[in-house]
Design a protein around this nucleic acid. Structure first.
Length: 418
RNA sequence: GUGGACGUAGCUCAGUAGGUAGAGCGCUUGGUUGUGGCCCAAGUGGUCGUGGGUUCAAGUCCCAUCGUUCACCCCA
């Protein structure tokens, strides 16, 4: 048997409506915030991601699906959206059409990691980018949008963490002093932290080992004390605006994002009812990325959110499944003699935009009714020789069991009035 | 890439001290001569993930392999 690839999934009819419902909600929210959708290809030149995400990040060094096409081009299935969106922004010179772009996206991404709860190899993200504003109101707007999305979708168990990691230079200096202060205590940390110390010392902040945590609390300086004046003022304003928007936040100086391109504001919404992979969304400011990818210096801010994790969070809090709507009308012709008559009616009903269906297995009346019931159809049109002779149908309301004889042409207006 | 758990009908699972498989749900049909949901009955459905080994005999023990899952790493 041929199976799907590890870390991918088939979405079957019973679950697909959760996806559709969430997508619809999100579209409404993006519209309310006045964002435009952007769609970019699922694969790009490998170089784009190497430059955009950072050559030495885990994503680029070991998680990308990369291959050579028949023209000997190195291509990669996108592992994230931002690099592609910025590429499109530069390529189509969107800065010329307006100085500020508000964009949103949703779609599949690919990373070759070991699957676990809340992590797939083909997974989906939605997210937004504001391209062109350096001001804190852009940061606050994006964070507000993320928070509102989870609120509207009914995810109650969540917390927002925000932080500022300053400019890239300030961060470099900070890492220097961090290493200096920690070095004397290095022996006390877990082996993994000792290993990370030189290459990725910011990671020591989110080690799960309790001992490491308390060591960090005791000795590690806060990056917030190492911001320059303008970065600090920027962060203050972001907090002020979030307060005005009534978005509850926690300042978390240990929040360091993994992608190279972040500057200043970073933030993350954590789900409280998820497994180990509990980041619902993560984002921040990236003021260097546009020029790193060959555009003019253009400050930007955005976030990306895991779609699967959103659905997990919703499912974790939902008490009961609501039954999906069935067709409005189920037609049940008694025999082959009434088939054409029934088909004519069904055709017109469907053309009028009313959902209708019919048994295609020529089963017994009992079986047809069972099927209509299982589908959760609202009405069944019973059509036997008597009905057909009078150009009528017996319309049965499946909820009340009331059955009435109606003129066939009158069905449409009857069903439309519901 | 590393580690743990698991792998029996479409689904959820049971299978005792090793003797070639069961339940519930689902699905189909029947209990009405043209009619659902409840109830009752019958039926459908499994090479016990796969391949080896031990044994007179393996779903049940051993090894390998594939797969699923959770966690680490990292990240949404």
């Amino acid at each position: 048997m041929i199976r799907n690839i590890k870390g991918t999934q088939d979405l079957l009819p019973p679950e697909i409506h959760h996806w559709q419902a969430a997508e619809e909600h999100l579209r409404q929210i993006f519209q309310a915030f006045s964002y435009s959708e952007i769609r970019t290809p699922v694969f790009e030149k490998t170089e784009l991601f190497a430059r955009g995400i950072g050559e030495f990040t885990d994503i680029v060094t070991k998680e990308m699906y990369t291959f050579k096409d028949k023209g000997d081009l190195w291509l990669t299935l996108r592992p994230e959206f931002t690099a592609s969106v910025i590429r499109a922004y530069i390529q189509h010179n969107l800065a010329q059409s307006a100085p500020l772009q508000r964009l949103w996206y949703v779609g599949p991404l690919f990373r070759q990691e070991r699957p676990q709860a809340g992590r797939m190899r083909q997974f989906h993200q939605f997210g937004v980018e504001i391209i062109g504003s350096e001001h804190p109101e852009a940061d606050a707007e994006v964070i507000h949008l993320a928070w509102t999305a989870y609120e509207k979708l009914g995810v109650k168990g969540k917390v927002l963490h925000i932080n500022s990691i300053g400019s890239q230079e300030a961060r470099k200096d900070y890492i220097g002093t961090l290493q200096e202060t920690l070095r004397p205590h290095l022996e006390a940390f877990c082996p993994q932290c000792q290993e990370r110390f030189s290459g990725n010392s910011l990671r020591l902040f989110d080690c799960k080992n309790e001992n490491c945590q308390s060591l960090m609390k005791a000795y590690a300086p806060s990056i917030l004390d190492h911001l320059d004046e303008s970065d600090a003022a920027h962060f203050e304003k972001v907090k002020e605006l979030l307060a005005a928007l009534k978005v509850p936040y926690t300042v978390n100086p240990a929040l360091v994002r993994g992608l190279d391109y972040y500057t200043r504001t970073t933030f993350e919404v954590k789900g409280l009812n998820l497994g180990a992979q509990d980041a619902l969304c993560g984002g921040g400011r990236y003021d260097q990325l546009v020029q790193d990818l060959g555009g003019k210096p253009t400050p930007s801010v955005g976030f990306a959110a895991g779609f699967e994790r959103l659905l997990l969070a919703i499912a974790a809090e939902k008490k009961e499944e609501s039954e999906p709507d069935g067709p409005t009308l189920f037609l049940a012709p008694f025999s082959e003699n009434e088939l054409s008559f029934a088909f004519e009616i069904m055709g017109k009903v469907r053309e009028a935009g009313i959902s209708a269906e019919m048994d295609l297995l020529r089963r017994s009346m009992k079986a047809k009714m069972r099927e209509a019931n299982r589908l959760n159809a609202r009405f069944v049109a019973l059509i036997g020789p008597d009905e057909m002779r009078q150009n009528k149908v017996s319309l049965k309301n499946m909820k009340t069991s009331q059955q009435t004889l109606l003129d066939a042409p009158a069905i449409i207006s009857f069903l439309q009035k519901l």
